[in-house]
Simulated assay, not measured.
Amino acid sequence: MPLEHPVEIKITVGGDPTESPPGSVDEAVQALELPDGRARRIWFLEDLTPGLTQHLPMLETGQIFRVRLDEKKNGSREADATVKLRPARRTQLPHPWDRAHSAGEAPKDGTDGYEYRIEEDWAGTRRFLAASLKVDIDPVRLTPEDAPEDSRQSALPPREVFGEHHQRFLAACADRRVVLAALTPLGPIEGTRWKDVKVGKFTTMVERWTVEGLDFLELSIQLEAGSKGDPLERLIAFSTAVAARGLNPFSRQETKTRRVLEHLAHRAGA
């Protein structure tokens, strides 16, 4: 049966010092023969209200808030702000949020464009439907022209870049009302991305995330909507191809978002 939605299959390498000794991620980069990749910085927003029974309430209720800043090889920059519902239910996605769509023209909130996706995320035994709205933003809002070139922190709190389009998406689809101003920015995470990396017969996206005390690679492939491939068979074959390159996947496979949010929230609490 053709796939109703795209399926992204993810495998994590590294990320735990007890399983991955220092230098193991560097060795994985060498094993994959990766050239210089595209640098990026990533922030997440979470509710760190003291005394909550849930450690990561936004993540645990399926709401993810992310801001990215990409450094292009020609020296220019791109930035976007994303709200993702994961896991999402089909019953919480009314029209027009029941289908993927995008716009190249600026929405009402003055951004450059947006992309709305519905896809399945597979990481180990985890299978989630995810609905995400990515809105392009002006990178100057994150790194003003007069900011030091080596500045790591955003001069503008990332929560301020979520605009009307995100608010409409949340109002229509989210189970819980969110006051963005009450969320705490976490990060930045230093990232590097490589596209079109050959791993066996698979064309793979590779992304490295590094933040104090945490360093790992995520390798991912995507099955397009309408394709007839069995995702489970592809997962097994992809895992075999990764192992054949001498890489040792982390035993606790999960999304990189959860891994870094747990790390960043623990560090912020400490």
Rank of each mutant, 00 (worst) to 15 (best):
G200E: 03
F202E: 01
I236Q: 14
Q222F: 12
E190Y: 07
K228M: 12
G187I: 08
L232D: 09
A182Q: 06
D230A: 08
F202R: 02
W209G: 03
L180H: 10
P185M: 09
F202D: 06
L183R: 05
L217K: 08
T184R: 00
D230W: 02
R208G: 03
M205W: 13
L223H: 07
W194A: 08
T203Q: 13
G226I: 04
E224S: 09
E218Y: 03
G226H: 06
Q222P: 13
Q222W: 15
L235H: 07
R208Q: 06
A237C: 04
A182K: 06
T240G: 09
L232I: 06
L217M: 03
L214S: 02
G226R: 02
S220H: 06
A243H: 10
T204F: 02
L217I: 04
D196R: 11
L186G: 08
G200N: 02
E233R: 03
K228D: 15
Q222T: 15
E218S: 00
L214A: 11
L186S: 07
V179D: 15
M205G: 14
T210K: 11
V179Y: 06
D196W: 08
T184E: 01
G200C: 01
A181E: 12
S227G: 10
A182V: 04
F216A: 06
G226K: 01
F216E: 00
L180T: 11
W209M: 03
T210H: 10
L223C: 01
K228G: 12
S220Y: 02
P188I: 09
A225G: 07
A237M: 11
L217D: 00
R193Q: 12
M205A: 13
D230M: 12
G200K: 01
V206S: 01
D196G: 13
L232M: 12
